[in-house]
Design a protein around this nucleic acid. Structure first.
Lengths: 200, 200
DNA sequence: CTATTCACCTGTATT
DNA sequence: GAATACAGGTGAATA
């Protein structure tokens, strides 16, 4: 099913379709799949966020082993620099820029600046699962995903369902990726209203 | 009783005695008195520690007046620097390095880093009395002392009494300084056993 | 002002 | 036993 070699072509085709004539629903969905690149992104690791990760400390601890394996800090004269910025794209195509650094005092790797905004927008709760992925393509684009620990409550899909009264329960049986793409297409058109709901 | 002018001579004599022939018990006790310098240390001030001082805040508030009088923070361009490190020697000769700084938010002077370890090792409880002293000698060495608010329970002397079954109750009538020096001489020889007891 | 960010710190659980 | 990882904190600086 993976078609890495046609990726760039698909992206170009998507752009043509979106800005040109054939902007059908199906084309748009495909565009999202391509734009987010998740179909060819490998999951680097996942973490169930702790109360502290989503609390007032405004930071996410990256387990050391995963951090050093997947997010090595750039070196400056044989010493890791203080921090750097990492860009992650979410399933909606939104890019999140986080400050990523190492805290000497606690010997731990953390995402700091920008993280609290992600927690707020995604309504992350303790126990929710976040995932970090990297595109297999040339761009090595990083992605960030999230899943409610209880798929049946605060999930994005549910919110949209209640918003528009549209029965898309059948989408639940499909995989999360497709579901989130569908809900994203809805939220793109009704962004403000959804925000109102999601901030209740 | 103070014999400041003979201090350095006494120290030299102590060294000669310790490393030479005459290492009697009395000489050793004198050596401790000299080494700790407490006999010529003046007490700067005392404080009965509060529950917060020995609790989870991991800090000791130094009364402002005493702090500014005795522990002025170094200046850097007419402004007190953020913090500094102060070394205090306890009666056992152990050096405690505390971070000492001023908290703008509470307008108070505090000992932070290192303080909780002192609380734990000395088993400080709310109401216990701590004292700060400074050597009258050239070194201006700082000392820290502590006294249980209830001399008859967890005092260091008592622990040693129970440990070795030696009746040194008479020492109680002497001043704390001498008592602690005596008990120190015992603990120096029986360090491990005492630790076992004091960590019950 | 408040909220966020930053660079520290520590107790506890685990290895 | 010691060393490490990290969840849960802090004050201060900044936006």
């Amino acid at each position: 099913m993976l078609r890495k070699h046609t990726y760039r072509e698909e992206l170009e085709q998507m752009k043509r379709n979106l800005h040109g004539k054939g902007n059908t629903k199906e084309t748009a969905f495909a565009a999202v799949r391509v734009a987010t690149g998740l179909k060819t992104a490998e999951t680097l690791f996942e973490k169930a966020v702790t109360p502290s990760d989503v609390g007032k400390l405004n930071r996410l601890v990256i387990p050391k082993h995963q951090a050093e394996k997947h997010f090595p800090l750039p070196l400056s004269g044989d010493v890791s620099v203080r921090g750097t910025l990492l860009n992650f794209e979410d399933v909606n195509g939104k890019v999140w820029r986080f400050r990523y650094s190492y805290w000497n005092s606690s010997q731990s790797y953390v995402l700091t600046k920008g993280w609290s905004r992600f927690v707020k927008e995604k309504r992350l709760c303790a126990g929710d699962l976040i995932s970090f992925k990297r595109s297999n393509g040339q761009d090595q684009q990083l992605y960030i995903g999230w899943k409610s620990k209880c798929e049946s409550d605060q999930d994005t899909g549910r919110v949209v369902v209640r918003l528009f009264g549209v029965d898309i329960t059948s989408l639940k049986s499909q995989n999360d990726l497709v579901m989130k793409e569908e809900t994203e297409m809805l939220s793109l058109r009704c962004n403000k209203k959804q925000r109102l709901v999601t901030t209740i």
